[in-house]
Structures are given as C-alpha cells and as structure tokens.
Design a protein around this nucleic acid. Structure first.
Lengths: 215, 215
DNA sequence: GCTAGTATCTTAACAGCGTACAGATAAGCT
DNA sequence: AGCTTATCTGTACGCTGTTAAGATACTAGC
C-alpha cells in the first residue's frame, strides 16, 4: 500500500503532475516577497519541490516562466479595465474615472504582477499570444477617450485627442508606480500604507484627471 | 625607462589612480547599453581594467557603486528641475510647465540614470547624503504647487492641493516611464523615437497638466 | 496486456556572478 | 630610512541559469 497506483502526492512522486501551474504560483509568491529582481528559477523549482532542471520541460527558460506570469497578469488587467469601463455606463467621464480607479487598484492589489508586467526585458513579447492580450488594456482606454471626444472607432486620433490619451494614461500609470515604490508615502504623510493611498489619496488625485475641454 | 617613476598609464600600473570615477563611468555606460539589470560589477571592473575585487576598496559592494551613480543622478535631476522652475519666472503655471518639460527631458536624455534612480532596491538610501539630495526634486515641485495655490511655504497642504500635487507628479513621472519603456511608440504611431516624443508628444501631453481650479 | 514511444524529472557539469580573504605593490608620513 | 596605510591581484566559495545524458512514469497501438 506504500506505493498506491495514484501516488497522492505525498512522498515525492517522480512525476509532479502539476508542475507548470505550481511554478507560476511560486514565481508570483517569490516576486511578492522579494521583488522582481529577487526571483530566481532555482528558488521557484525548490518551492515546487523539483530539481533546478525540471522547469525547462515546461518553459524555455527563466524568461519563459516570467512571461507566463506576465501574460496572466495582462489578461486579468485587461478584464479589470474592461469591467470598470462597463461600470461607467454611458458617461465617458465616468468611464475614465472608473478605469483610473481600476488601474491603480489592480497595481496595488497585484504588485508582483504589475511590476513584472511593466518591466520590459523580464519577459518575452513573442511568448504565446502576448501580442493579442497585452494591448487590450490600452484599447479599453482608447475606447473611452474616443467616446469622450465623440470620435468614431476607426477615426484617426487628432493631436489633442492623442495628448489627452497620453496624459490620462500617464497620470494613472505614474501614480501606480509612485504608490508601489513607496514614494507617495512621504508625500502623503506618515500614516498611510496602501489602503490609505487607495481610499484617500487616489480619489483626491483622480479629481485632477485630464478634462476634454481646455481653454 | 620601461618603468618610469610616473607610469603614464600604458602597460598596467598596479595602482589605477582614477578607479572610482572610472567605475562610475563604466557603470553608467553598461546600464545605457544593457539596461539596469544588465549591469554587473565584474563587467565594470573589466572595463576599468582591474580585477573583480578592486571595486571593493572604493565601494562597499555592487549596490554601493550603483548608489553613487544614482546619487549623482538625483543631484543633476534636482538641478535641472530647479533651473526649469526658475525659468518659469513669476507665473506658477509656467513654472509647472517648465518643470514638466525638464522632468521628461531629463529622463529621456539620461535614461540610464533615471531608470536606476527609480529602481528601489538597486541602491542604498542610506548611502552618503542621499537623504538630503534625493528629496530636492520633490521640494521644487511642491514649491511651484504652493505658489499655484498661494500657500505659504510652511502651511500644510490641503486635500485638494495634495491631490493636485500628486496628479502633477504622476503625469510627468508616468509619461517618462512610458516613453522610456517604449510603450508610447505604439500609442504615438510608428514614426517616432525619442526626439519625436520629446518634440511632438510631450508638449501635446503637457497641455493636459492638472489645472488649479476645478468645478 | 505488453511494448514502444514520449513526456517528465534527476543528476552532474559548466560558466558567470558577487564577495571575502590573504598577499602583493605602491604611496605617504615621520 | 622605515612604518603605515591605501590600493590592487589571485584565489576561492556559494549562488545563479542552462545544458546534456540518463532514469522513471505515463500513453498509444497492437
């Protein structure tokens, strides 16, 4: 009975059974604990209970594993932004506001993924279907901007529309980065932490989102 | 004559003479070529023509060398922002606009330094006089924001002022990050590169800087 | 139900990394 | 002059990612 036909998983079945997903989970955990630079493939393998060479059968290399993590991140990120956009209903300003909230919310609630996602060089843009899922978040934002200016989905962006788009994107992206890196803690006073930033300072900041009509 | 008293530098004087500065220069060059993650202490030593253990006599460790690079970056960054602020004269809006230009300009003209500066964990905030020089850039921004709202230098920031400050900071910071990472190239169309971003899209974006009075 | 093939994992090895340690060399001070 | 200190080398250790060859288990086809 020691060696059941289906070795439940206890002692060390030669075949892991769920290695790929567990490597992804381990990678996310490591990044959460030690930051993106603290990730090592060997540590991920260690946590999954396999040898350092095992991951190679599921991912081309370390970059491959990180690419999978980033890809899943982009997928959820796009979903979150799309849901926020829908929450805005027919009001373009509200759509933008909800997206801004969702953008920063995602970053602070998924710091490991977010930081990895915006670290070019850590993942391979040619990995799987990156080219399709990654730009989705941007498309959602562009949609709300088009609605704001009454532009058709295929109409080219004017200079001013483009500037507005970049400013909107920049402000939430910059805020997310500053919040994650801790730079806002000092600006926002001693008391704080992430919840304070999300609940208190993010709404304050979002009041100054770009507005369509400017003198 | 082979071994002159002052060994000019040719064959390999045992003592380098200018190692510290050359290590800093090498580090900046490496980061420029290979990115922050591409930096290695051994490569810096290699370029300076010394053994891998030599840098230890000038910097505590690899982080120490990077700290020196980041510190010099923050110094120049603060200078650039202060100069831009002065350029704005008595008009707070112009001061902010000039600072925004200078902020992104610095980032795109000094990509190696800028990326290192905003990579917590790569340098030590306790290194030398970091605590004094690093916050200077923020202080310059805060000064212009106070002028915008007519706040005294010692008056506490109101909620709205704080939101405005964070929004202003976020938008230029986010834009700089997006521009550096190449994400704007796609948003800004195929033609481009850094000059196009600086000359064309940055001014467009800066038109949407936060404005003091909001309904 | 057996066998062949394939997928998965291990062990061992290699080069490159940061860094610590002991020793060599040069410069400066008294 | 000699002694002290600063600077650099050589060596070594443990870590990293990755590769190659071999072990093990699952799966198809007969």
């Amino acid at each position: 009975m020691k060696k059941a036909k289906k070795p439940a998983a206890r002692p060390r079945p030669y075949h892991h059974g769920d290695l790929k997903d567990q490597l992804v989970a381990a990678a996310e955990a490591i990044i959460l604990e030690r930051g993106v630079d603290g990730f090592t493939l060997r540590e991920a393998a260690r946590r999954a209970g396999v040898s350092p060479a095992a991951p190679a059968h599921h991912f081309k290399d370390a970059k491959g594993l990180l690419s999978e993590v980033a890809l899943r991140g982009f997928k959820d990120f796009g979903d979150a932004l799309a849901a926020a956009d829908a929450r805005g209903g027919g009001d373009p300003a509200r759509r933008l506001h909800e997206q801004g909230l969702a953008y920063v919310n995602f970053a602070l609630k998924n710091p490991a993924r977010f930081q990895l996602m915006f670290r070019k060089g850590k993942w391979d843009p040619a990995y799987e279907n990156f080219a399709e899922v990654a730009p989705r978040a941007f498309a959602v934002l562009e949609g709300a901007v088009r609605a704001t200016f009454g532009l058709a989905p295929d109409a080219p962006l004017t200079d001013d529309t483009n500037g507005f788009l970049m400013a909107t994107w920049s402000v939430v992206h910059g805020f997310a980065h500053l919040a994650l890196s801790g730079d806002l803690d000092m600006a926002a006073g001693p008391r704080g932490g992430r919840n304070a930033i999300l609940d208190r300072f993010l709404p304050l900041m979002l009041r100054h989102l770009p507005m369509p009509v400017r003198k």
